[in-house]
Structure formats: structure tokens, C-alpha cells
Design a protein around this nucleic acid. Structure first.
Lengths: 141, 141
DNA sequence: CGAAAATAGTTACCTAGATAACTATATACC
DNA sequence: GGTATATAGTTATCTAGGTAACTATTTTCG
């Protein structure tokens, strides 16, 4: 198995998403749909561009996932003064899904981190953040 | 921005893959295709199942990417005793692509890690590996 | 030996990322 | 006020991940 940090990261996130998708299937959600719902819970109503910036995912991807969540009746549009934008918020059903999913995600994540020292978590978080910054600087060049 | 370790991980790998895809486009490769070529360089000839196990990616995904690399003339089949399996190895052109891509990837990765202490890299690597193990144990339950 | 089980790979069909090119609306500015 | 530019979102099309169900071989074992 390749020992590189980056390789390990990629492998980890693949497995992580796969596992979380399994867990979330009990609520009928996929991992990425959960992220959108999480976003909306935090800031309602929210536009697609705001979600796109927050999650750092391109607009067409957000657009597609939003459409699916709308079809599932989890989110709905809210009238806006700016006719270009599509402001969305969670429906009653969406709020319920949020609560259920939140519990699942929290349980899953805390389970994973158990037995890893706060010190190590902190170092890892800091390292990844500085790698992200580094990537962002690359962006500019 | 959400502060969770896992959220940061996902964001990082997304940006990382995006950026690496850009860099690799000069060689006409995508990040995932590079991983397959890397795999083959390390062990030739190799079967799809071996690649699947090594990269921890499901067979249909490997199957599809292999088909594309074959079409590009970077890899080719090698006769095997077991008629079920498809043993592949790099063509001359594939070897050349490997060399070019290897340079690009190494340059990109070392650039990112520069300025991060060996200590932090080491802790991060160890932490991610134990998170992966944890995920794997979950698999069993 | 012959039938059952395991293994290798493929096909069909989902979700989720990306880019490029488009429409519609809003803003800037001469 | 009218035109140019910027912004919000969508559509089309690509790669890449996943599962389920299939075919074709090989192995196992009674």
C-alpha cells in the first residue's frame, strides 16, 4: 500500500463517503445531499451560489442536487426580490430529515474519532487546513 | 466554514483532485487514470481484481477506466492461463506517460508539503491510517 | 466425473464531481 | 436612458465513484 499522505487521504475519504452513504441510506439521503441540507439548516433561506461558495463545489453540481432534494420534498423555493436567484429553505419534512441525519452523522463521526487523542486530531486538522491554503495559493499562480 | 476534521478532509481531497487533474491534463491523463498506471508500473502484468484490491475501488469502476486507457493505447492485454482474467501491462507509450506524469505528481506533492514539518506530516499520516483502520473495523460489524 | 460454489469481468443504472456554453436578470456607467 | 458587464442558474457532456445482476470460467468436493 502506497505510504504517501495524499494517497492515504484519498483512500480515506473514499471509504468514509461510502460508509456514510450506507448509514444515511436509512434516512434516504446520500452524503452530498446531507451536506446541502446541513448548509441550509445553518443559513435559511440560502441561494445556490451561497451553497456553492460555502461547500466549494461548482454551481451545476449544486443545481442538480438541489433539484433532487426539491423532488423529494425536503426543500422548497422562497420568493426573492432578485429574480435571478433561487432562495431555498427546508420544508417541515426537510427539518425532520435533518434531525435524523444529524444524529447518524454525529454518531458515526464520534465513533471514528474515539481512541484518537485530541492532540493528534488537532495536529491533523491544522495540517490539512494549511495544505488547503497551499492549494488555494496555487490557484492564484 | 465547518471546522470538523472530516469536513476539512473532504474539501481538501476535492480541491486536490481538481488541481491534480489540471496539472495532469498536459499529459492527457486524469488523476484516476494516473493511479491505475502507477499501479501497473509497480506490478506488471496485473489483473483488474488486483488493481481493485490495491486501490480499494470497485471492479466496475476499474473496468471502465481500464477500457479508456486501452483505447488511448497506454495499456494492453497480455495472454493469461486463466481465461477469466484480463492481465494488463503498460505499452511503450504507457511507460512514457508514466514518466511524465510521475514528474508532475512528485513536483505537485512536494510543493504542497514544503513548509510543513516532518513531525506534522508524520502525525497526520498516522492519524489518517488509524481512521482508515477504524473504518475497516466498522465494515465487519 | 459432475454439480455446486467461487472468482473475474462486464453491463446497466444510480450519485457526484468537473467544464463549457447558454439564458435571464441585475448592475454599472457613459 | 441605454448599452455593456456582471451575476445566478441551467443544460449538455465528460470522468469517477457506487450497487445489483449478469456471463464465463475455474475450483471444490461429494
Amino acid at each position: 500500500m502506497r505510504e504517501t499522505l495524499f494517497h492515504q487521504q484519498l483512500q480515506f475519504t473514499r471509504s468514509f463517503k461510502k460508509k456514510l452513504n450506507e448509514k444515511l441510506s436509512t434516512v434516504g439521503l446520500f452524503h452530498s445531499q446531507w451536506l446541502l441540507i446541513y448548509c441550509m439548516k445553518k443559513q435559511q433561506p440560502v441561494t445556490l451560489v451561497e451553497i456553492s461558495n460555502y461547500l466549494d463545489v461548482e454551481k451545476p453540481t449544486i443545481s442538480r442536487t438541489v433539484k433532487r432534494l426539491e423532488e423529494q420534498g425536503l426543500i422548497e423555493e422562497v420568493p426573492s426580490l432578485d429574480k435571478r436567484e433561487k432562495r431555498m429553505h427546508l420544508t417541515r419534512k426537510g427539518e425532520e430529515s435533518y434531525e435524523e441525519a444529524q444524529r447518524i452523522v454525529t454518531h458515526f463521526e464520534t465513533g471514528l474519532m474515539k481512541e484518537i487523542s485530541d492532540q493528534d486530531i488537532e495536529t491533523t486538522l491544522r495540517t490539512i487546513q494549511s495544505l488547503r491554503e497551499k492549494l488555494y495559493e496555487e490557484e492564484i499562480n
